[in-house]
Design a protein around this nucleic acid. Sequence first.
DNA 1: TCATTTTATATTGCGCACAATTTAATTTAG
DNA 2: CTAAATTAAATTGTGCGCAATATAAAATGA
Lengths: 139, 139
Amino acid sequence: MEDLLKLEKQICFPAYAFSRQLTNLYRPLLDKLDITYPQYLVMLVLWGEQEKTVNQLGVKLRLDSGTLTPLLKRLEQKGFVNRTRSKQDERVVIVSLTEEGTKLREQAKDIPMKIVACLDVSIEELLQLKTILNKMLID
Amino acid sequence: MEDLLKLEKQICFPAYAFSRQLTNLYRPLLDKLDITYPQYLVMLVLWGEQEKTVNQLGVKLRLDSGTLTPLLKRLEQKGFVNRTRSKQDERVVIVSLTEEGTKLREQAKDIPMKIVACLDVSIEELLQLKTILNKMLID
DNA sequence: TCATTTTATATTGCGCACAATTTAATTTAG
DNA sequence: CTAAATTAAATTGTGCGCAATATAAAATGA
């Protein structure tokens, strides 16, 4: 008789609520760096790789130019990234870290730890969650 | 040496990406009912309980009036819900299903099945995911 | 070669999310 | 009983997300 049209039966609602809860947990920490959670994700990529095209960022973060272009302009305005057209291909925009953007990493280094502490579950469960989620991500 | 400031090391990014992937999976199905995913969540609650105040919806869905008020106005405009002030307490707005809103349930009944089919993982893993996520939801 | 197609980014428009503030009704305390 | 505090929604403003479209540069092909 199980009625799948019950909020309590849904898997999708917890995923949606959890995702929002996460960005709310990040908010006070990221406020100190003057960036938002999606902006932080871009910075994470750039801290790892120095520079990326808009397209490459989009593939990594699963976001399109409609989201990234204005977001990157805001990061540029804050002075954390540069946006320059590629000389070889004028269509391509290369996003790179400024000195300020590079330095920001220092202030961000203990954020992951603090977030995990908030979540108050075991590392095993976190890894388990990550494994399942990654498996469920299509592509 | 593990560098937690790596996108690949983050648990939060898969959660964020998965949540967006879900609403993208729902979109083509919900387009046919002319509602969005957050609107669908409101309908789920009302299909179960007939009527709720804005506050009660907010508690269940973890959304505030800043999000719900305009969303509910859109559902009202589509003819799926009524919004009426409580006679006992004029501050309270009661949201209830219209006949159209009630009928919409019929068209939604196989959506959960279709979504699960898209995800292509075992029921056990889904339940495991749901358990962990619910555990991680604070409150 | 030069029109056609493809690709990369940008723009527009809509609907969330959420912080901060406002408005108005109810509760409470003195 | 009334001033102060609390509560419920609404409003305002900012930043995503994403569909749809536009723009412009590069690649392809007859």
